[in-house]
């Protein structure tokens, strides 16, 4: 049986800055920085954690600019160091145009265009930001770190809308986009880093429907993604006996049911 007991120290700071008073209404800049310490009794997680690991650093900076009353631009750069999986190089987390299409008395409808965070579960959108998640790590059964980039963001279009009912608010976000694969996908799903590559030529479907009852006292959500990646094998990949790969398709389907209860001092989540 796997045993993972972790003790941790996690510090974070976040800051907000406003460019200057003239731009204040239109421009917002925010950032975050966190450093983790992980110690485990068995199994290493993010570095040599059996002897205590500091290999868990998350940094980010983002900006939002209101171009016109209906169009807003936003982007975030992150650097994430996590064991041997991520080395801290800069990563374009999202870069999008937010277009507000319709605003009614009780509803609104809009679209995001560009690189968009995938709305999966309740935390995927901001899982790298320490002070927005409930634990040191997000639960690995839902928010896999091993193949995170593919579930983090996608390049495409997503529509969003909300409707305010008498007792709560319905929020919907979803659309299509090209997933963003990296070498970790091959290692996790295909056993090793192959010479061939996974292509993201096929559009993925991503979506979330969420109901916030009574201002978020109870939150119910259903979210999911469905995607396919084409593997283009090289000759040497297919020559390897027994475990060799020819060209093929890697299909991933992912559904998450989430429930959260918010009380004054307690928050319960179930996914």
């Amino acid at each position: 049986m796997k045993k993972l007991i972790s003790s941790y120290l996690l510090t974070f700071l976040s800051f907000s800055a406003f460019a200057d008073t003239l731009l204040q209404d239109k421009m917002q800049i925010h950032g975050f920085a966190s450093q983790g310490f992980i110690q485990t009794t068995d199994n290493n997680f993010f570095g040599d954690s059996e002897n205590g690991s500091f290999d868990f650093t998350e940094l980010g900076i983002n900006a939002s600019f209101q171009l016109s009353p209906k169009i807003r631009l936003a982007s975030q750069l992150i650097s994430r160091r996590a064991g041997e999986m991520y080395n801290g190089s800069l990563w374009l987390d999202y870069a999008l145009a937010d277009i507000n299409l319709v605003q009614g008395d009780n509803f609104q409808l809009g679209a995001y265009l560009g690189r968009i965070k995938n709305p999966l579960g309740l935390y995927n959108d901001t899982r790298d930001v320490a002070h927005t998640r409930q634990g040191v790590f997000t639960p690995q059964t839902i928010y896999f770190d091993k193949v995170r980039n593919i579930s983090m963001s996608s390049d495409g279009i997503q529509f969003y809308g909300d409707y305010q009912f008498e007792n709560g608010t319905l929020l919907v976000q979803g659309g299509i986009g090209f997933p963003i694969p990296d070498k970790n996908i091959e290692i996790v799903y295909m056993g090793q880093d192959w010479e061939g590559s996974l292509d993201n030529n096929d559009l993925a479907l991503i979506g979330r429907i969420m109901y916030e009852y009574n201002g978020g006292e109870w939150i119910f959500a259903l979210s999911g993604a469905s995607l396919e990646l084409d593997f283009d094998a090289t000759l040497s990949d297919s020559m390897i006996p027994l475990i060799g790969f020819n060209d093929g398709v890697l299909a991933i389907d992912y559904t998450i049911v989430s429930l959260q209860h918010n009380a004054e001092k307690w928050q319960f989540g179930k996914a």
Partner: peptide, 14 residues
């Protein structure tokens, strides 16, 4: 929590 989710996912502002 709502503001943070919007700020750090690019879907809104504070």
């Amino acid at each position: 929590g709502i503001w943070d989710r919007q700020i750090f996912s690019g879907t809104g502002i504070a």
